[in-house]
Design a protein around this nucleic acid. Structure first.
Lengths: 328, 328
DNA sequence: CTGAAAGCGCTTACAG
DNA sequence: CTGAAAGCGCTTACAG
């Protein structure tokens, strides 16, 4: 592999001059040509690690997501990678699998100067996040005032779901969720509730377990729990709002299996705006999070931090309703 | 940020000794302790770029996939990342978007010594792949004898689909596919055909277009094409085999919309083994590719190449049938 | 505009 | 076992 030294020798100039050509700094036309010819001839490529060591700019950012099999996280990663690629940045993928150890490990990697910045979507309670001192953007989770948080308006999302259900005739609403999700996500419930409160309608809430992780096993537990409710006549609802599309899909399948007609007897609204294979229809009627906008907001904010430009600490994006056939 | 020099000064030893402690080389107990204390006190972390520059081992590998929104590619990336993480390797994610320019760019990155090796799932006809001279594993695509190719037994997959359909009573089979996929994937058709040939049953094939890319628009074209076939009475099949689950899902929806009963009137088998949100049921009955095994085979082979150990050039994994309710 | 030289933070023969 | 020193491939003040 040719180095800058080889190029300099071939072109008959100093390495400093080659370096300047490489970085498009002013160089005499004639030398520029000689260097370019040498580069071509030797098939020279710059060693990125040497450059990073010297300049400490890695042009790499890392993203931590809990679980790539969740289409929402997957879409997010996909957009972030595209946006970064377009501006010459690389993406290091960190798939935490909801494991705090893995997340710590990745944060450590960042602190080792491996990357210029970090985007994280995390449910972990790591003190490491509290004392972040490098460019960092958190999605949907507030780690304190010094850390940028990009989120969607969860309160508005909850209200929107309630308004749609109310308008379409639901009078026995329920919010089904899993996990004592920290902070902002809880507002989906308060938003949902407030609309029905105003309408003087009683609204219930059922928690399917305190873990946020939705493993295969846990998914089935939701189905079983639902079956129990139905068989003990405790299921008396005509409108369901769930904390995610994944939960909504499980609920939909189970209810249909139990003989409920959706949306005729029971209407259902999920959360996230997932589409079948990300190209087709919504799985269920849903509150759509603008994934692409989230990705853009994260990258833009992070780059501002890296470049020491001014940046916002709170970014709130708006959600919309997507009809997936589980509402009238 | 503390460097190895700071640690050496703090511990009262040479940088060479610190380096040895870091790499678990023999060091006297007393010095070991002094160094560890200094590391702790200074909160020292090694600069990975300096280490790479010196050793030219990056402990990073890159993966090129066409499109992360495709759940099959997504699952693959997810597994690769997990396996690599477990052995201390990092993953650079390259999402080519079926764009040859982007792929070239990523290959260039590898050649810049950014990574130790590359795993690629590509449909591009790049001469760059032919002249690969670094650790490289290709998935499902044969770039010549010097390059490792990991693939599933497409011929057997085609035969399996045919056997299932035959056994379940299909007598008017058809293979629906898109893209003139290069090489091995074509064998899904030859395998499929051979079984029906042996049974003396006529089998058709319909190509939905020569592009491999399944964008949102192209997906809809499949539906329209199907509608045209049906309305012109050219659709006379009781068993459909498609080149992917994505295509199968589109076909299923469109046929149901057109009033066909699946699997009663028409049975349908896709390819890949995708599951709803990767945790639930199969979207359609399908030929299941063992994604996890593919990921493991790729990583293992690549590491052998990196470590200059012997490695196989051809790895062929077997597929299985997954019942997704679109077969009797 | 150009070149010589120092230095980024490590590792690794080489002496001792 | 340990230290001094060279060197990985770049960039960047500094003189000229």
């Amino acid at each position: 592999m040719a180095t800058i030294k080889d190029v300099a020798a071939e072109a008959g100039v100093s390495v400093g001059t080659v370096s300047k050509v490489l970085r498009q700094v002013n160089v005499k036309e004639k030398n520029y040509k000689k260097v370019m010819d040498a580069i071509e001839k030797l098939d020279y490529r710059m060693n990125a690690y040497a450059q990073v060591l010297r300049t400490s700019r890695t042009f790499t950012i890392a993203i931590i997501v809990p679980d790539l099999t969740n289409p929402f996280f997957c879409a997010l990663v996909c957009y972030v990678e595209q946006i970064l690629g377009a501006i010459g940045y690389r993406l290091l993928l960190c798939n935490s699998q909801y494991n705090e150890g893995r997340e710590k490990h990745y944060i450590e990697m960042v602190r080792q100067n491996m990357v210029d910045g970090l985007i994280a979507l995390s449910y972990a309670n790591l003190e490491e996040y509290e004392k972040i001192d490098f460019p960092f953007v958190s999605i949907d989770r507030n780690f304190g005032n010094h850390v940028t948080c990009v989120s969607c308006d969860n309160e508005a999302g909850g209200r929107l779901a309630a308004k749609v259900l109310l308008e379409k005739g639901c009078r026995k609403p329920v919010y089904l969720h899993n996990g004592v999700r920290s902070g902002d996500i809880r507002k989906r419930w308060t938003g949902f509730k407030s609309v029905f409160d105003e309408a003087g309608i009683n609204v219930k809430r059922i928690n399917f377990g305190n873990e946020t992780t939705l493993t295969n096993t846990r998914i089935h537990l939701i189905g079983e729990e639902l079956e129990r409710l139905v068989s003990s006549d405790a299921f008396d609802f005509d409108g369901i709002f769930t904390s995610s599309d994944v939960v909504a899909l499980v609920v939909k399948k189970k209810l249909e299996q139990l003989g409920f007609a959706i949306p005729e007897e029971v209407q259902l609204i999920g959360y996230d705006g997932l589409r079948e294979m990300n190209i087709g229809d919504y799985y269920v009627s849903t509150i759509v999070q603008p994934v692409k906008n989230i990705a853009m907001a994260c990258v833009e904010n992070l780059l501002n931090q890296i470049d020491k430009k001014p940046y916002q600490k709170r970014i709130r994006l708006s959600v919309s309703f997507g009809d997936g056939g589980t509402t009238k």
